[in-house]
């Protein structure tokens, strides 16, 4: 059985700034990182590999330099890495993205049965959390989002039981395979690549599939296939705060003022 993990290269948001004039992200010089949720997805796939001996493929849609993200997954131990890169994929929204990823997974499934697809719950640049569910829909897979624990993966019975982390509660659910999971950070602690794996991965092959391989209708993918687009990005203006007391000379008084203020605004529960 093959486990497919979807990963994305995202700009390091701690280092992203918005150009106040053009209201666009200043991308220049900003380093890229692996979408943090996706690192947990990779880890869970590798745990399936450790436990059941299944193979793991990582796929990513992005520009050629997104190869670095896949190389990191290779260093952690995935068996195969495929970069989906083509000019016609560019400018895609979540719908067009999930079409390309689903097509790639279908292609992988022709070589080896895909039992589980794992995605991060969302990416930190788009924050939509739509691509995972979009893929599941297109593949007609069971769809379990916000997974924070996998209780059981039953390969012979072809079912999976997980815990979903919802606001204020957990949900224990079971679904038949094939399944798509989107995962939260609480799920696991990603492994740190050993030096041997890093050196291996440096020379490992990252396959690149363009649209000649996937053969998708160019009107359904990329910018052309995207019904949504970003009209504006901006940093919300923050109202100027107020200074309370004199923390340097009267810290206790200042703390008291702060507590009163928070009670007044109903920010503290008593």
């Amino acid at each position: 059985m093959l486990v497919v993990v979807c990963v994305k290269q995202v700009p390091d948001t701690t280092q992203v700034q918005i150009d106040p004039v053009t209201n666009t992200l200043i991308r220049e010089g900003v380093p890229f990182i692996v979408n943090p949720y996706d690192t947990h997805a990779v880890e869970e796939a590798l745990r399936f590999k450790d436990r059941f001996g299944c193979r793991v493929a990582a796929i990513s849609m992005g520009p050629p330099n997104a190869e670095a993200t896949l190389r990191k997954a290779l260093a952690q131990g995935v068996d195969r890495a495929v970069l989906l890169s083509d000019r016609s994929f560019g400018g895609a929204d979540t719908l067009a993205t999930s079409k390309v990823l689903a097509a790639a997974i279908e292609k992988l499934a022709k070589e080896e049965e895909v039992g589980v697809v794992i995605c991060g719950k969302q990416t930190i640049d788009g924050d939509t959390a739509q691509v995972g569910p979009g893929i599941a829909t297109r593949l007609n897979f069971s769809q379990l989002t916000l997974v924070d624990r996998v209780d059981e993966l039953d390969l012979s019975g072809k079912k999976i039981r997980v815990s979903r982390k919802l606001e204020g509660r957990h949900e224990h659910v079971e679904a038949p395979l094939p399944v798509l999971l989107t995962v939260v950070r609480e799920l696991n602690r990603p492994r740190y690549p050993t030096v041997a794996m890093r050196l291996e991965s440096a020379d490992a092959q990252v396959e690149v599939w363009d649209n000649k391989v996937l053969q998708l209708d160019v009107n359904g993918i990329g910018l052309k296939g995207s019904p949504t687009w970003v009209s504006r990005i901006f940093s919300p203006e923050r109202a100027k705060g107020e200074m309370l007391g004199d923390g340097a000379h009267d810290p206790e008084g200042a703390a008291q003022l702060l507590i009163d203020k928070m009670l007044e605004k109903d920010l503290l529960a008593l």
Partner: peptide, 18 residues
């Protein structure tokens, strides 16, 4: 072995990334 106290994972990633 890639085995170390878990606090260090953040440190290693921060160092490598930033």
């Amino acid at each position: 072995e890639s085995r170390f106290p878990e606090e260090l994972l953040n440190l290693f990633e921060n160092m490598e990334q930033r």
